[in-house]
């Protein structure tokens, strides 16, 4: 026998899934919403998306090659996902240099400073977004009007912005009702906002694709949206004149984008279904609390980042149900 055989420990076969394929599926899931953003905001949306993707890939490559001195692994698709998500989270009229700063914050601070893919505690795209939101609050909250609205204005307001302003000024919900888009527009995405957050319907569509291809499980999105609906529902029932009905909370702002695409980020979300539900519920509750009582009209980015920080704790203390764990074994002294 001259042939050299390979010897390895079992198992000797592997499922055809790979990290790269998973990342690509996330990208596919985001394509409908991406196209819609181009349709709604025009060329600007494509510009923002391309700059964000290019900048994320470039920073990933440069940092891996020259700073960490490891083999660059930009083909694993994770930087691509970060780039698209970052673009989804900014307004379409954002200057190019701010996008690049955001990409640097996302990849550099959000990901590489922790050691790269798999080691980051926070969702990189959200780190980028929040960094920009705090550094450039004006640019980050000047929303371009949609091309469909036909109003001669340079900047529009998001539904959540309108609601927040009313809330802060003590204006009753019924008085601002005329300014707010109807739920159908929220669903279809005929509203102002960041690139990727406008069409709830297309986001849900991508989410269903990810569910079918097993990129995500139902636990996190359902927990986020469910808890947000529940909490905002309670407020609404207590005082419908002060607090708007839950439909607006669910369908507007980054709720769908956050719940389906960002909270479910594998690296920064917990491992077991039980902890995923706790994590998701935490995000939902925090989002509503920030929206109603915080300084910002939108709170899901902060909510996800806060819950990201709790993930190591959840992983440490919430264990999956183990086989054969019927009765507690006596604790070892």
């Amino acid at each position: 026998m001259s042939k050299i055989l390979t010897v390895s420990p079992s198992p000797h076969i592997h499922s055809s899934d790979s990290t790269r394929k998973i990342m690509l599926r996330v990208v596919y899931a985001m394509i409908p919403a991406m196209l819609w953003s181009v349709f709604v905001f025009g060329f600007d949306a494509a510009r923002v998306t391309l700059i964000a993707i290019a900048a994320c890939l470039a920073f990933e490559f440069l940092i891996q090659k020259y700073l960490l001195k490891v083999k660059p692994a930009i083909t694993d698709g994770s930087a691509l996902v970060t780039g698209i998500l970052l673009a989804f989270n900014v307004p379409a009229n954002l200057p190019w240099w701010i996008i690049i700063i955001g990409a640097f914050a996302a990849i550099g601070f959000g990901k590489m400073s922790f050691g790269g893919l798999g080691s980051n505690i926070f969702n990189p795209a959200l780190v980028g977004r929040v960094f920009l939101l705090i550094s450039f609050p004006v640019q980050m909250t000047s929303w371009p009007v949609t091309q469909q609205s036909g109003v001669d204005a340079v900047t529009g307001a998001t539904p959540l912005g309108i609601i927040k302003e009313a809330l802060n000024n003590g204006v009753a919900v019924s008085e601002i009702a005329s300014k707010l888009p109807v739920p159908k527009d929220l669903l279809l995405g005929n509203i102002g906002g960041s690139l990727g957050e406008i069409s709830a319907l297309l986001l849900i569509l991508g989410g269903i694709y990810m569910l079918i291809t097993k990129v995500i499980t139902w636990h996190i999105p359902v927990a986020v949206i469910g808890s947000a609906a529940l909490l905002s529902g309670i407020f609404w029932m207590v005082n419908p004149e002060l607090y708007i009905n839950p439909v607006y909370h669910i369908l507007s702002g980054g709720m769908m984008l956050g719940a389906i695409y960002m909270a479910t980020d594998m690296v920064s979300s917990p491992m077991t279904p039980k902890s995923q539900i706790i994590y998701g519920a935490g995000i939902g509750v925090l989002t509503i609390l920030i929206r109603l009582f915080g300084a910002y009209p939108e709170g899901i980015s902060f909510a996800i980042l806060i819950m990201n920080a709790l993930v190591p704790l959840l992983n440490r203390y919430i264990k999956p149900r183990r086989f054969g764990e019927v009765k507690k074994q006596p604790a070892k002294a």
Partner: peptide, 22 residues
């Protein structure tokens, strides 16, 4: 001379638990 190729995690302990060696 090498007569086989080990393809597991590269530590001696794991290789030794699989077989005698390459």
């Amino acid at each position: 001379p090498k007569t086989s190729q080990f393809d597991g995690a590269s530590t001696c302990a794991i290789a030794a638990s699989v077989y005698g060696g390459e």
